[in-house]
Design a protein around this nucleic acid. Structure first.
Length: 489
RNA sequence: GGCCCGUUCGUCUAGUGGUUAGGACGUCAGGUUUUCAUCCUGAAAACAGGGGUUCGAUUCCCCUACGGGCUGCCA
């Protein structure tokens, strides 16, 4: 039987970095086994539904190059579509089918109608807690005669449907990552599967859909491990073969709690907007909880797919090391193909002005200093407009006298003014020539190069004077040097 | 509280019944250099604790501690 896995986010907001990791592992697994990747939207909770969230989820997945073969997707026009033989994949549209399944469970004596209102349940909980007992539903509606229940339902009385779990014994969840996990039935509350609004809860909906869609492997977050017995109960009641389960470790905040908003950005959209490359983000997130070898950090999407093994996924949660993400993103920027790099950076530089030749030179100049694309203005702002507010006190090198500074700058300006054009065409040529010139004059590098560099950049810390000369060109360079000389008056 | 899961440098991780416990980010120190970034070299830094099993445990078992998840008519 071929592998079929699903990503099943609920449309309650943006694609979360934790969901991304789950989606990624599903994708890796599907591709590794030449299986099918399905996107199903779990939107049965109308109270938490957020308009546009499904579209946003699809866009983020697409931006990350996670492309489902089947299920909900978004077309070029931005409209939601459903593809595949098991539609609908928008779970709320399957509610009628879920209700049918629930009725079958009732008929089999595996579920029952419950009329206890939220207020009654609340009171029950409070009393139990006061008595020092574990809060749980006492199952009183299980005792109702089926005919009475049916009559009350027909009369329009508000109700839910609950699973009737065994009161004793245990159930074993076989987990691909954690091994066998045993739960006692008496620990579980009779789970609501159909809410009073007629919609199914996750437990019923996901289980039935997974079955109906022939899902072979359920790869999901660890938070689902404790409710897996409920799902197994449904599989068993219907005589269905359960899929293989794999519960992924959680992604954590720096304080080790389950990753959440509040402690920094967690949406994929935010990371992308900040200028992290999808490839770098993917690489980074993929290595949270799993690693192909341990002695290598940079992998392509394809390499990750072919190396992925569910059994090698870690058991413990992982804190996001955002500094490492920064490093990785910078690494991608530095090592990628130059044309691809320019395609990425040039659009950012165009916003700052200048002509294309200047933009290209700046792009190469800032390459080793760039962490995120959104940093472009910060590291390149001063190359596009004349310097303002140059602080003369930072121009001298290590206690150099103003007169000496002026002498050196003026000499450099004169030398540069007379340099033939071909020398301005490369950083190396400029460096070679200037250094030779300094040697010829029997000067030290420091007293010439430091003032020259500050004059050109306006900053204490900057690229080398040669890089600056090359990028700025003769005209702008001479103007900046003159401005620096003048500022020393 | 109950149930369940987990625990290797600060963080992400590799790893094995016998290793100098490896790599990466970050940190620190050098080198290159007029400064910064890049680049190169090096350093500090971990098997939660206690019992077993064993000739030998970081590795297998138990207990404790700590952390987390679940305990909803949320997913």
């Amino acid at each position: 039987m071929s592998v079929r896995v699903r990503m099943a986010p609920s449309p309650t907001g943006y694609l979360h970095i934790g969901n991304l990791r789950t989606a990624l592992y599903n994708e890796f697994f599907a591709r590794h086994h030449c299986g099918t990747l399905i996107l199903r939207i779990e939107d049965t909770d109308r109270a938490r539904y957020i308009e546009g969230a499904t579209e946003s989820l699809c866009r983020s997945l697409r931006a990350m190059h996670i492309l489902p073969d089947e299920g909900v997707w978004i077309n070029e026009a931005g409209q939601l579509i459903e593809r595949g033989d098991y539609a609908p994949y928008l779970q709320s549209k399957r509610a009628e089918r879920h209700r049918e399944y629930a009725q079958k469970l009732i008929a089999m004596g595996k579920a029952y109608v419950c009329f206890c209102s939220p207020a009654v349940l609340d009171k029950m909980r409070q009393e139990q807690q006061k008595a020092g007992m574990a809060p749980r539903y006492d199952g009183r509606c299980r005792l109702l005669h089926p005919e009475e229940s049916a009559a009350r339902v027909s009369a329009g009385e508000s109700h839910v449907i609950r699973l009737a779990f065994p009161r004793e014994g245990s159930v074993t969840v076989m987990d691909e990552i954690r091994g066998d996990v045993v739960f006692d039935w008496n620990e579980l509350d009779d789970q609501v599967i159909i809410k009073s609004d007629g919609m199914p809860t996750y437990h019923l909906a996901a289980t039935c859909d997974d079955h109906d869609m022939w899902i072979t492997h359920v790869i999901r977050g660890e938070e689902w491990l404790p409710s897996t017995p409920k799902h197994l109960f449904i599989y068993e009641a219907f005589g269905w073969k359960p899929p293989i389960f794999a519960h992924l470790p959680l992604l954590l905040n720096p304080d080790k709690t389950k990753l959440s908003k509040r402690q920094g950005d967690v949406s994929v959209e935010d990371f992308l907007a900040k200028g992290y490359l999808p490839e770098a983000l993917l690489n980074f997130v993929a290595l949270l909880g799993w690693n192909p070898s341990g002695d290598r950090e940079i992998y392509t999407h394809d390499e990750l797919r072919s190396a992925f093994e569910l059994e090698k996924v870690n058991k413990s949660g992982a804190v996001l090391n955002l500094e490492k993400l920064d490093w990785m993103n910078a690494e991608y920027l530095k090592s990628m193909d130059t044309d691809a790099y320019l395609d990425l950076v040039l659009p950012e530089l165009r916003k700052l002005g200048g002509d294309e030749a200047l933009q290209k030179r700046v792009a190469m100049l800032i390459r080793s200093r760039l962490i995120r694309l959104s940093d472009v203005p910060d590291v390149s702002g001063e190359y596009f407009h004349p310097l303002r507010n140059l602080n003369p006190s930072i121009i001298p090198w290590k206690g150099q006298q103003p007169a000496d500074v002026k002498e050196k700058l003026a000499a450099a300006r004169e030398e540069l003014a007379g340099l033939p054009d071909y020398l301005w065409a490369s950083t190396d040529d400029l460096e070679h020539h200037i250094k030779e010139w300094i040697t010829r004059r029997a000067w030290q590098n420091g007293p010439v190069l430091w003032p020259l560099r500050v004059a050109l950049s306006g900053r204490e810390k900057s690229p080398s004077p040669f890089e600056l000369l090359y990028v700025l060109g003769r005209e702008a360079s001479l103007a900046r040097i003159q401005a620096a000389i003048d500022s020393l008056q």
